[in-house]
């Protein structure tokens, strides 16, 4: 039984998806992470002034840029730490909509991201008919919640990876997860 391919998607491929990415690869899953937004957004000095990067910018570049801008601020709010973690995992953020690789399971971290993922699958045109399981777990976009979320995602992926026939069991896996963690998931089967 070959390993499943997991994709973890958040908005900017910085915090939530990367936290999960780190944990999942550490646990030996086949995992990639993505952002679904049009840009990578990082907090700025005020909520009105976020730092916006394109998906082409590498984590390293962002790290250096922010260090230059206000090292103290971005060290204090943990952004530099996060970018440092990220650049050790991969060179730059990836946009989910630009990804051509097929996954078995896509887990999103936000309802809006989930919507964007579904819309992307609809836009792709369902040519192939290969099913893909989409799951959404709402995680607040902060460091603590991202860490908790990563653990939850890892637990979920563990269940998914372990089951013999995912299609047949996904319903139960979701239900058990929801009951156990008092969380509500969104779930869908999309097709490549």
């Amino acid at each position: 039984m070959p390993k499943l391919d997991f994709a973890i998607v958040c908005s900017s491929n910085q915090n939530r998806s990367m936290a999960a990415h780190k944990l999942l690869s550490k646990r030996g899953f086949n995992v990639t992470s993505f952002g679904s937004g049009t840009h990578c957004k990082l907090p700025g000095p005020t909520p009105e002034e976020p730092n916006i990067y394109s998906f082409d910018s590498s984590y390293d570049e962002m790290y250096n840029d922010l260090t230059k801008k206000d090292k103290t601020l971005y060290t204090q709010n943990g952004i530099l730490h996060m970018l440092d973690r990220n650049r050790r995992i991969k060179t730059k953020p990836e946009r989910f909509q630009d990804c051509t690789v097929k996954h078995d399971c896509v887990i999103s971290c936000d309802e809006r991201v989930y919507d964007q993922v579904i819309e992307d699958f609809e836009n792709r045109g369902n040519v192939n008919g290969t099913p893909v399981h989409l799951i959404n777990l709402n995680i607040m976009d902060n460091q603590e919640e991202a860490t908790i979320g990563a653990v939850l995602i890892c637990e979920l992926c563990q269940q998914i990876e372990e089951c013999e026939d995912l299609d047949d069991n996904i319903e139960n896996i979701i239900k058990e997860f929801e009951d156990k963690n008092k969380r509500t998931l969104y779930y869908h089967v999309a097709f490549y």
Binding site: P131, D165, D167, D168
Partner: peptide, 15 residues
């Protein structure tokens, strides 16, 4: 009886 088979078959119907 298998959910996955049904899913694929339903997708086939759509096609």
């Amino acid at each position: 009886e298998n959910t996955g088979v049904r899913t694929s078959a339903l997708k086939y119907c759509e096609m």
